[in-house]
C-alpha cells in the first residue's frame, strides 16, 4: 500500500478548477517534486495533502484512510501526528526564540522537550542561534528553524511549499543538503518548487498545468548517496 494515494482529486472554486482530476501515488520514503507555472494548483494540492483543505471531489488516502471524509477536528489531529510543514514565508512565531518555536510544535504534538528541540536545531546547524528571535535570524536561518520544527515530531511525510523561494543560492544549497539527509533517513518528502535545480534533486517530478497533472518525470540521475 502506498503511503499517499491521491485519486481523481478536484478542487473547484466557483468557475475555476484549481485541481482537475489529479491522481498521484507516493511511496514511503519517496522524494517527489511538484512543478508548474503560477496558479497551476501546486499549493492547492499541498494544502489538500497537508490536511489543511478538503478536495471538492476525489479521495486522498493517507495510510489507507480517506482524509477527504474526515472532520476538521480529525484533520487537525492527522496534521499534528503525521505531517511536517515547511512554507516559503517561514512562518515562525515572532515573539518566541528559535528553540521555543521548535518546542511549539512539540507542545501541540505531545510534550515540549528543550533538549530534543536543541538537538533538532543542532542538526540544521543552528545550535548557537537557539535563543535568538526570528527577527535576529537571516532568512536561511529562519528556514532551517522551520525545517527543525517540521522534523521534531518525526512526521510520516514532510511537505515543503517553495522552501527555497525566498533564499539565496548558498542557503538553498544548505536546505537541499538537509533534504538529502532526510531522504537518506527515509523521510517521505514532497517539495513544490519553481526551480528546476531543486526539482532535479528529487527522485520524481510531477508537473501541473491549469490544475491538471500533465507530466511525470523520473530522475534518471538520482543516486542514493
Amino acid at each position: 500500500m502506498s503511503l499517499l494515494e491521491v485519486k481523481n482529486v478536484s478542487k473547484i472554486y466557483g468557475p475555476l478548477k484549481a485541481l482537475d482530476q489529479v491522481s498521484l501515488k507516493v511511496e514511503n520514503g519517496e522524494w517527489v517534486a511538484i512543478m508548474g507555472p503560477s496558479g497551476s494548483g501546486k499549493s492547492t494540492m499541498m494544502n489538500i495533502i497537508g490536511c489543511m483543505d478538503k478536495p471538492s471531489q476525489g479521495e486522498v488516502l493517507l495510510d489507507g484512510a480517506d482524509i477527504a471524509k474526515e472532520s476538521n477536528k480529525a484533520l487537525t489531529a492527522i496534521r499534528r501526528d503525521k505531517i511536517g510543514l515547511i512554507f516559503q514565508q517561514f512562518h515562525l512565531v515572532n515573539y518566541l526564540t528559535a528553540v521555543e518555536n521548535v518546542m511549539v510544535s512539540q507542545y501541540y504534538h505531545s510534550m515540549p522537550d528543550e533538549k530534543e528541540a536543541l538537538e533538532a536545531l543542532e542538526r540544521v546547524g543552528l545550535k548557537d542561534r537557539a535563543k535568538h528571535l526570528p527577527s535576529q535570524l537571516s532568512g536561511g536561518e529562519q528556514q532551517r528553524v522551520c525545517i527543525a520544527r517540521a522534523l521534531i515530531n518525526h512526521p510520516e511525510i514532510v511537505l515543503a511549499d517553495e522552501p527555497t523561494g525566498n533564499l539565496d543560492e548558498a542557503n538553498e544549497g544548505i536546505v537541499l543538503e538537509l533534504f538529502k539527509q532526510l531522504h537518506r533517513e527515509g523521510t517521505t518528502l514532497i517539495v513544490v518548487t519553481h526551480d528546476p535545480e531543486v526539482a532535479e534533486e528529487a527522485q520524481r517530478t510531477i508537473v501541473l498545468e491549469h490544475g491538471r497533472l500533465v507530466r511525470e518525470i523520473v530522475n534518471e540521475n538520482f543516486k542514493e548517496d
Partner: peptide, 16 residues
C-alpha cells in the same frame, strides 16, 4: 492571524 494559522497548521486544536 498568521500566527494563529500557523499554530493550527502545526496541529493546535480549537481548545488550545
Amino acid at each position: 492571524r498568521k500566527e494563529v494559522g500557523l499554530r493550527k497548521a502545526l496541529g493546535a486544536s480549537d481548545a488550545s
